[in-house]
Design a protein around this nucleic acid. Sequence first.
DNA 1: GTCTTATTCAACCAATCGGTTTAAGACGGA
DNA 2: TCCGTCTTAAACCGATTGGTTGAATAAGAC
Lengths: 114, 114
Amino acid sequence: MTEDRLSRVFAALADPTRRDIVARLSVGDATLSQLATHYDMSIQAISKHLKVLGDAGLVSRGRDAQRRPCHLEADVLDLMTAWIDRYRRAAEERFQRLDTLLADLADDEEGAAS
Amino acid sequence: MTEDRLSRVFAALADPTRRDIVARLSVGDATLSQLATHYDMSIQAISKHLKVLGDAGLVSRGRDAQRRPCHLEADVLDLMTAWIDRYRRAAEERFQRLDTLLADLADDEEGAAS
DNA sequence: GTCTTATTCAACCAATCGGTTTAAGACGGA
DNA sequence: TCCGTCTTAAACCGATTGGTTGAATAAGAC
């Protein structure tokens, strides 16, 4: 399903290091060792983070000799915004209905008082 | 900082059960035991999920006798969309620049060929 | 007061996560 | 060919997660 995919994308972005990697890749492609220079952990740890991002479909890897440049697949982010917006909208509409309901009740009160 | 908060919100929504709870709460408030009827796990497990959603700021709990109705705090979702949009936009702009760059190169080629 | 419902707390468990270290491939350059 | 660089694989470790069960607490309802 798209269920697993959504879970993987959310989980991938739940880690600050991985979010930072995404932020860097949004500026431009980069290799593993280039990325690793910015973090206080081993290259292998960053490699694992890239694997998580890859499994989530958020980054793809190319080939350039022994390098594997990382590329941000920004389309996947739309998956999340679609999900989020759906329920944010629902909540807002419900809030709106409640709001008008309260307004109507207030009007009734005024009507009864006059 | 807001770093932890973002991590908690993303992590909270990385679980399908919790996403489903958010979906249900977007329709209307509900109590723990009402929510629990829809899932094939113990009430305590759902209570834990609600705690995670609460710690992320995604749901608040009220008081109604011995019940603690759950309410979706939809504003928190904006935190995520703000983050996502920021980098999706950056990636798109970069793509746009690359696109026009390639177009310019093509024009140069044509110019050189003519 | 006692019973029932709604919720939380605590201990436990297997599985996953985020990191480490060490070793092994894959590739280009001298 | 051998060397240095870039990357992945594997084993390990402590902490966290997602679930369980059992007991404790809180608040009506009878």
